[in-house]
Design a protein around this nucleic acid. Structure first.
Lengths: 353, 353
DNA sequence: CTGAAAGCGCTAACAT
DNA sequence: ATGTTAGCGCTTTCAG
């Protein structure tokens, strides 16, 4: 009479709580409590259950657990892209690891750094399979978020400081840009070409520009808007094209401060192509300290954003937000370290690998 | 009297099949059939159900579906590493995309290229949450697999050709190495330093070496085992160290054929550090065509392994294997294209970006 | 072509 | 401290 239809999926043959309970001679509730370390079970029973678990190689069925608990065990990670800049793949690898340590699976979504892509991650259909979202927002503005309140558990990463009472784990961009500019100014550079996004639409670009200007100001140097260029996508090709264009425009500069390492690497390439000596004629610096920054010619001066710290804190903030949706929003800022190499300081590479 | 305990998880408030059925005035079975496009439902009913689905913004609960179907909707991807070589992050991004197109989530696992890591991916505890596994094996041997038969759905990627009746999607390594060697020989290079893994333990290294030897043989050139070096990890640092060591050993060579681009980039860096002109004194080539290969000094000659094709075929092979565990194993080989750039041919860069 | 109902494996309220 | 049991949302057999 039963509508018997044992699904023969991937887990066919797996032991269940019932099997373990039968073998251990206890009820499934007891097994569940032992497995989840919840409730009080006597040590003797616990031991019996545990040996039954081991004997049957029992693995909890996550689908069932999640169905019951109402969660999915999946968190989303929305980043602009994965395969271009070197930054986001390194960050993603760290986040995947940090999440795995908490039993969470990461669903990676690429937004292409567009408002549409970010909105899709924020409230598209895939959102329904996630317990929470780590959103590296670059194009969204505060109004976009305000329109969608209350949001499911969301932690904003990266540059953008969005209000709306959201948790943030941000890298101190202003600081990073300031470190770079101070370093370049300290080396006697006076005309620093800033390669980044459009400060009127990208808040990250704006904040880095703030840091840059602050450093110039502190040094008593003038700020020339001519020297700020929007490169579009933040990848190698964009950096290359921007430098070629700047030189074609007859712009004079003795340093390049790029908003990330990929742009800086493209810039290095372009300067080399045009026969400009680095760092003698033009010093070049990036931000991110990606692996490749140690293998350019010359090696690239950059800012280490401590991705590991960012990843760890981001996942922790999200799990805490998921556990308690009502707690007040927390903003965490991570400071970077300047790594001086040969692209700004001749001879600095001698100590590097 | 009911043990009421409505879980208030992430999906609280979501519409269910029941809600849709009630609104459409049909049974949940009908809704299920419409949503899954299974069974025959009259167009009129279908339309009614669909508008109810839209009205309630219904999203199927994947945990429930999976519990019922016995599958998880998750496939694993085991790769040596994610953040070093440039190859695996680009490949992973493509695989994540190909899987997402089929409604699958990818769980990425890093094996560090060790036998232990690969065995863990193959039969560790996390395996129980996956419907299938894409395994990029580099250290496992045939016996390891034979010991574990029958395996859950598994597709082997990459270099290693393991027997045991498994599906494979492989890149034609021998061919790739042959292309590189023929190119170098055609340029008049006679002493080609081969940077790769130990051919006695890494089958991939062995096969690339086969291709290399075949090319030398076809050209009537001698093969000098002195010129083959195991670099350890296949990353920038390893390539750098290997070249430094080779030169310290007094080895003479007029070309470097690296088993991947990261090693080649490290080699370029080392040659540059030691004042060796590339390509005049030593030509350098890699395999993988990672993004960075277009931004080295000079740009790196390499082989495009058509990762997009690999990703697409791998995911397809795995879904087919999951759907039909009994079908005969399929082996697919993908051929690469040689990309000639300035690291082997002076002047070749003029056309590149 | 549609409806009713069992039950996937797990958690937790309730009972003992 | 342990047992019993309802039911999470879905798919699917069986009946109509």
């Amino acid at each position: 009479m039963t509508a018997r239809s044992r699904p023969e999926g991937a887990r066919a043959g797996q032991a269940t709580l019932h099997d373990v309970a039968r073998l251990a001679g206890v009820s499934i509730k007891t097994v569940s409590e032992v497995v989840n370390r919840t409730g009080r079970v006597t040590p003797a029973t616990t031991a019996r259950v545990e040996s039954a678990v081991a004997a049957l190689a029992y693995q909890p069925n996550l689908s069932a657990r999640r169905l019951r608990r109402g969660t999915t065990g999946v968190i989303g990670l929305a980043v602009p892209e994965l395969s271009m800049s070197g930054y986001f793949n390194e960050l993603s690898a760290l986040i995947v690891r940090a999440a795995a340590a908490r039993g969470l699976t990461v669903l990676i979504e690429q937004t292409d750094g567009t408002r549409e892509g970010e909105l899709r991650a924020l409230s598209g259909p895939r959102r329904s399979v996630m317990d929470g979202l780590l959103l590296n927002a670059t194009a969204l503005d505060e109004q976009d978020l305000a329109d969608r309140l209350p949001l499911p558990p969301t932690v904003v990463l990266g540059e953008r400081r969005l209000g709306a009472g959201l948790d943030h784990v941000t890298f101190r961009n202003e600081e990073a840009a300031r470190l770079v500019a101070e370093h370049l100014v300290g080396l006697g550079r006076r005309r620093i070409l800033v390669l980044g996004g459009d400060p009127t639409t990208s808040a990250s670009a704006a904040r880095r520009l703030d840091g840059h200007r602050a450093a110039l100001e502190a040094a008593g140097l003038p700020f020339d808007p001519e020297l700020v260029r929007d490169v579009g996508l933040w990848d190698h090709d964009a950096g290359h094209a921007a430098v070629v264009r700047a030189r074609r425009d007859g712009l004079r500069f003795d340093a390049v401060a790029a908003v990330n390492d990929s742009i800086a690497i493209g810039a290095l390439r372009a300067l080399h192509d045009e026969g400009v000596a680095v760092p003698d004629e033009v010093a070049v610096a990036g931000i991110d300290d990606i692996v490749d920054a140690r293998f350019t010619f010359p090696r690239l001066t950059t800012v280490d954003p401590r991705r590991d710290e960012l990843a760890e804190r981001a996942v922790r903030a999200l799990t805490e937000r998921i556990a308690d949706p009502t707690r007040p929003a927390v903003v965490q800022e991570i400071e970077g370290y300047l790594r001086v190499r040969g692209s700004t300081l001749a001879g600095a590479d001698r100590r590097d690998p």
